[in-house]
């Protein structure tokens, strides 16, 4: 890895009894898109606020481009653009005026503000509404203006808090393209915190899974998937014309934990401790079942997330939080899954 631009060491923040961020260590390389994933209340926003020097850590350090985020917040904030989760603008100013004001706060001369605002409005596709009052903007428009606003200072690092929240699918697709472009074309480092996995996984170079203030897994998505498999969690999803027969046969196979029918017609989910694809095809042929679809799950973020999350939930309940109601982690995981599926 190149010399890291974001360097977090042993970062800890406590709110009363609650440990919001627990000895977080993280390094992000220049030009990387890093996804900080976790449920609500995992400490993502606290972490981003500490990176901006807006919240003081109880211990540990965070540095961006070699500057301490707590001690030199002004220098850090010159290099870092922050898009908060529900970005707000002055409702009585137009979109363009809002951008101009941000430019002025960054000490840009008026001509430069004007030039950048124009170019950025074009880039985020907001030129058509630039001279309307920001109070009339929809959520998606605000988000796009928010990105233009962040780019006004031409930051090297961009931190986005839940950028996809409340935007329609088309808007999310555009947003993701834009974010990817910011990284690839402009070479900016981007840190996205989110609980919406599908959208984020498409554009992240690496992800970190953040639960209850701890980074429980960190790495490229593919690697996280393989890591899970080496721990004996294989997930297959298949579709057949005779699901009942095949499920019965699979449940008899050695190494299969569960094989259950999904809600959809002919869908089967199989969880096993080893790779059973070879046996599965032979078994299907023996029983005369046609395999219509076969897909290895676990390589995608949702599965990874769920598995890590369940693991983390288990160990947490036992060891660190005896006072916590048991199974809270699992309940959260279930809630999370529901949310993911709905999205």
């Amino acid at each position: 890895m190149e010399e890291a631009i974001v360097r977090i060491q042993g970062l800890t923040k406590r709110y009363g009894q609650v440990l919001a961020v627990d000895h977080l260590d993280l390094e992000i390389a220049p030009g990387e898109v890093f996804g900080l994933l976790g449920p609500n209340g995992a400490g993502k926003t606290t972490t981003t606020l500490m990176l901006l020097g807006l919240t003081e850590p109880d211990s540990g350090t965070a540095a961006i481009d070699g500057r301490d985020c707590t001690r030199q917040p002004l220098l850090v904030k010159r290099e870092v653009g922050y898009l908060p989760d529900s970005v707000g603008f002055y409702p009585d100013l137009t979109g363009r005026e809002n951008l101009r004001f941000s430019g002025a706060l960054n000490g840009l001369p008026p001509e430069e503000c004007e030039r950048r605002a124009e170019a950025l409005l074009e880039r985020v596709g907001m030129t058509y509404a630039a001279d309307r009052k920001a109070g009339t903007y929809s959520r998606g428009m605000k988000q796009r203006l928010g990105i233009a606003d962040v780019l006004m200072k031409d930051p090297r690092v961009i931190i986005m808090d839940e950028p996809t929240l409340g935007i329609d699918p088309e808007g999310i697709r555009e947003l993701m393209t834009l974010i990817r472009e910011l990284s690839v074309r402009d070479g900016r480092t981007i840190l996205i915190s989110s609980h919406q996995l599908y959208q984020v996984q498409q554009i992240c170079d690496r992800v970190g899974i953040f639960v209850r203030g701890r980074l429980i897994a960190c790495g490229p998505i593919g690697q996280l998937g393989r890591q899970l498999q080496s721990e004996g969690r294989y997930l297959l999803e298949l579709r057949t014309d005779r699901p009942g027969t095949l499920a019965e046969a699979l449940n008899g196979l050695e190494g299969v934990r569960t094989a259950e029918q999904g809600a959809e017609e002919g869908l089967l989910r199989v969880e096993s401790v080893r790779d059973i694809r070879r046996e599965l095809t032979m078994l299907a042929a023996e029983r005369g079942c046609a395999l219509l679809e076969l897909r290895q799950r676990g390589g995608d973020l949702e599965e990874i997330y769920r598995n890590y999350f369940e693991k983390a939930g288990d160990s947490h309940d036992d060891a660190d939080h005896p006072a916590d109601p048991a199974g809270k982690g699992r309940a959260l995981a279930a809630a999370l899954r529901r949310r993911i599926f709905r999205a």
Partner: peptide, 14 residues
């Protein structure tokens, strides 16, 4: 309440 405070605070001003 209109969400501009955090945006202000994220700018390089005291």
């Amino acid at each position: 309440s209109q969400g501009t405070l955090i945006r202000l605070a994220a700018q390089p001003i005291y």
